[in-house]
Write a protein that binds this DNA or RNA. Structure first.
Length: 427
RNA sequence: GGAGACGUGGCUGAGUGGUCUAAAGCGGCUCCUUGCUAAGGAGUUGUCCGGGUUAAACUGGACCGAAGGUUCGAAUCCUUCCGUCUCCGCCA
C-alpha cells in the first residue's frame, strides 16, 4: 500500500506506475473518494466531540433527549463514512508499488532486460537430455506414480535427488548464517552493507486470509490453495509467513538490518498455466524453497537487494552453473515490487535460461499494510522489506542438466559432495 | 475434541455503567543533587486517523485481544470470533 499523502501530492507519478504496471485503478476516483471521506470525517468527529462534552455525568431528561438526537445524526454520518472507507480501502489495496527508476518499462516479459551473463555455457559432445528424462532413467524422479496418488504436477523425488535437495539447502544455510562468508561476498561485490547473518527459520505453511492480503500476496486467489474448514491458505513461499512475522511490531533500530532465511514447502495451484512445462518438476504444485527475507532502514533497502543478488550469484557460481541476471520490467513484475531482479540459470536440456531465483524489493509497500515500524528521532517510520530465493527445487534441474554425462549419470557439484556423504555422482 | 479460567499501556497490575481525561509500581527518557563499581530528588512517557504547520507547537476523534450489539453514556453488560493458561482425551 502506498501512503495516501504521497498519492495526493504525486498523482501523476502514481498514474504512471498504474499504467506501466497494467493495474486497474482509477487514481482520480481514489482522490475524490479520499476528499469526500475526509469531509465526512470532519463533520462526524466534531459531532462526536459535542456528544462527548455534553454526556459527562448523569443527565436530566431534557439532556437525554438532546443527546439522543445527536446520536441519531452521528449514526447517519457514520454509516456513510463506513461505506466510503470500505471503498477507499478497496482501491488503496489495488494501487501498486511505484517501480524504481532503473526498472525497465514494458508490457510483458519481452520488456525484461538482461543485465549480465555469467559462466560459460559448456557444449556437450552428445545431445543433452532434459531433467525429466534423466530423472526417470536414474529412477530419482517419478511423476507417473505421483500422478496416480496426487494428480498432475506432483513428483516423487528419490534417492540421490532427495539427498541433493537437502545438500543444497544445507550448503546455502552454511553461507547465509556465516558472517565471515557474507563479508567475503560484500567485499567481492564492493558493497557497503553490514555482514549481519541470516537467522534460520522454519515458518508455518498456513496463513490467515487477512495477513495474506496485507502481504499483497493473496491475489490472484486462483493461484492459492484454500483450506475452507479452517479458512486458512497454504503459503506459496516462505516469504509469506516470514515477512508477516513482525506484523504490528516495532523493530528496534539497532536490530536493523534484520535478516531471516526460511525453509518451507511452497504450494501453488498453477492455474492458468495448463499444458505449460508439464514434464518433470519445473512447474509443480509443491516444491521446497529456501527464502531470504530482510528488514532494513528505508535508505538501505536498495543496497540490500544488491547484496541479496550478490549472494545468489555467489552461490550459483559456487555450483558452477551458467546464469543470467534479468531486470524485470514494470508490466511483468509483481504489484508489491519496486524492483524485481530474476536470475535465470542455463538448462542445457531445454537449451534455454530458465528462472530459478527471484529477488523482490518491496520498499515500504508491505510494511505499511503490516504495520512493521521502527523509531528514529522519536518518530515512527516503516521499515523496508526485501525477499528473495536462496534456492528452490528448480536449481536441482539446472544441476541435473548441466552435470549430466554421456552415460546418463549426473555428477554432483563439488560444494555439495560433503553434504552427501562424499557421493560424487548419481548413477 | 471436552471442561474451566483469563486477555487492560514497554512490563507488573487496579478498575464490574457516568468523577476513567485508565490508579499504582517497574522500566525508559530529560534535568538536578551527590560523588564513584552506587544512591537520592523533580519532571516526562503509547499508537492510529483527521485539522493545522516549511517543520513543530497546538487541536478533534479513535484505541483496554478483535468484530458486532445494548445504552443518552461501555474497559465494565450481551453475542460471535481469535489467542493464552490449567485439567482431561487424542497424538508425531
Amino acid at each position: 500500500m502506498l501512503d495516501i499523502k504521497f498519492i495526493r501530492d504525486n498523482p501523476e507519478i502514481v498514474k504512471e506506475a498504474v499504467k506501466n504496471k497494467k493495474a486497474n485503478v482509477d487514481v482520480d476516483e481514489l482522490l475524490e473518494i479520499d476528499k469526500k471521506r475526509r469531509q465526512i470525517m470532519e463533520s462526524s468527529e466534531s459531532l462526536k466531540a459535542e456528544q462527548n462534552s455534553k454526556s459527562k455525568g448523569p443527565q436530566s431528561p431534557e439532556g437525554i433527549e438532546e443527546l439522543k438526537k445527536i446520536k441519531e445524526k452521528f449514526k447517519e454520518l457514520e454509516g456513510g463514512l463506513t461505506e466510503i472507507e470500505k471503498k477507499f480501502h478497496e482501491i488503496m489495496l489495488k494501487v501498486p508499488n511505484i517501480p524504481s527508476e532503473d526498472t525497465p518499462v514494458g508490457v510483458d516479459e519481452s520488456g525484461n532486460k538482461v543485465i549480465r551473463q555469467v559462466g560459460k555455457i559448456s557444449g556437450f559432445p552428445f545431445k543433452p537430455k532434459e531433467h525429466w528424462e534423466l530423472g526417470q532413467e536414474l529412477d530419482i524422479l517419478d511423476s507417473e506414480r505421483a500422478a496416480k496418488v496426487s494428480g498432475a504436477r506432483f513428483v516423487y523425488m528419490k534417492g540421490g535427488l532427495a539427498l541433493m535437495e537437502f545438500a543444497l539447502m544445507q550448503y546455502a544455510l552454511s553461507v547465509l548464517t556465516d558472517s565471515g562468508q557474507l563479508k567475503k561476498i560484500i567485499k567481492k561485490a564492493k558493497l557497503d552493507v553490514p555482514d549481519t547473518p541470516f537467522i534460520p527459520v522454519l515458518p508455518p505453511v498456513f496463513i490467515k486470509p487477512d495477513v495474506f492480503q496485507k502481504m499483497g500476496r493473496l491475489e490472484p486467489k486462483e493461484e492459492r490453495y484454500h483450506i475452507s474448514s479452517d479458512n486458512l491458505y497454504l503459503i506459496g513461499s516462505a516469504e509469506h509467513t516470514l515477512g508477516s512475522m513482525h506484523m504490528d511490531e516495532f523493530i528496534k533500530i539497532e536490530n536493523l538490518p534484520l535478516r531471516y532465511v526460511g525453509f518451507s514447502t511452497a504450494f501453488r495451484r498453477e492455474a492458468g498455466s495448463y499444458g505449460k512445462d508439464m514434464k518433470g518438476m519445473l512447474r509443480v504444485h509443491q516444491f521446497d524453497k529456501l527464502e531470504m527475507e530482510s528488514f532494513t532502514l528505508p535508505e538501505d533497502s536498495v543496497k540490500e537487494q544488491d547484496f541479496i543478488v550478490a549472494i545468489q550469484e555467489y552461490m550459483i557460481q559456487d555450483l558452477e552453473l551458467p546464469y543470467q541476471v534479468v531486470a524485470i520490467c514494470s508490466g511483468d513484475m509483481g504489484a508489491p515490487d519496486a524492483r524485481q531482479i530474476d536470475i535465470e540459470t542455463w538448462m542445457p536440456g531445454q537449451n534455454k535460461y530458465r528462472e530459478t531465483h527471484t529477488s523482490d524489493l518491496m520498499t515500504d509497500f508491505q510494511s505499511r499494510r503490516l504495520a512493521i515500524k521502527f523509531k528514529r528521532d522519536n518518530k515512527s517510520e516503516f521499515v523496508h522489506m526485501n525477499d528473495a530465493t536462496a534456492f528452490a527445487g528448480r536449481t536441482l534441474i539446472a544441476i541435473m542438466e548441466n552435470y549430466q554425462t554421456e552415460k546418463g549419470t549426473v555428477k554432483i557439484p563439488k560444494v555439495l559432495q560433503k553434504y552427501m556423504g562424499g557421493l560424487e555422482a548419481i548413477q
